[in-house]
Amino acid sequence: MVVGVKTGRECLDRGGASLGALASGDDRSSLETSMAAPIPLVDYLVLGDEPHLVANECTSCGARFFDRRNACAGCFATDFRKVDVDSSGEVRAFTIVAFAAPGIAVPFVSAIVDCGGTSVRANLLNVTPDPEHVTLGMKVRLTTSSMGVDEAGTEAIGFGYEPA
């Protein structure tokens, strides 16, 4: 993260971000016979009947991390357990991103969602991306969305939060 500390003043020279194949599910129809199990965008997204996020929780102080730790960043203890993260939450901060990496559809809403005391970064889905429709403190719940299928016919599932 440290190396990527840059600014966006001259980001017009990137032009508008265009829609990439992976951002749409349009090519799914040609591979609809695939029976491969869907794959989550990240390993802390658990799919199934009730999709939810999981975290590594420090058994000593309760600090939660979405990737591995050798020791807790808060208390240095070394034992962790997998815990489910609440799927409902409240928007604590957001931005409406108008310039993004190639392949990412804009505008989209990035938010920090407080899920029962665990902060999660995610996109807001199923909401009009403007300041009239996205507000600080709005209640949201986890939802999933298809990211399309790859050449092997496997569907990828991403997640975000939608108005509750």
């Binding site: 965008l41 990240v42 802390y44 990496a101 392949g103 970064r121 790859d150 990828a156």
Partner: peptide, 28 residues
């Protein structure tokens, strides 16, 4: 982004997460 979904990295991500799991851009 590759042509087949292959989990990689600390989050087992199958695609770049910037823009898909919130933003990592500095302005954002």
């Amino acid at each position: 982004d590759s042509k087949t979904w292959t989990p990689a990295g600390r989050y087992g991500a199958i695609a770049a997460i910037d823009g898909r799991i919130g933003t990592e851009t500095m302005p954002g």
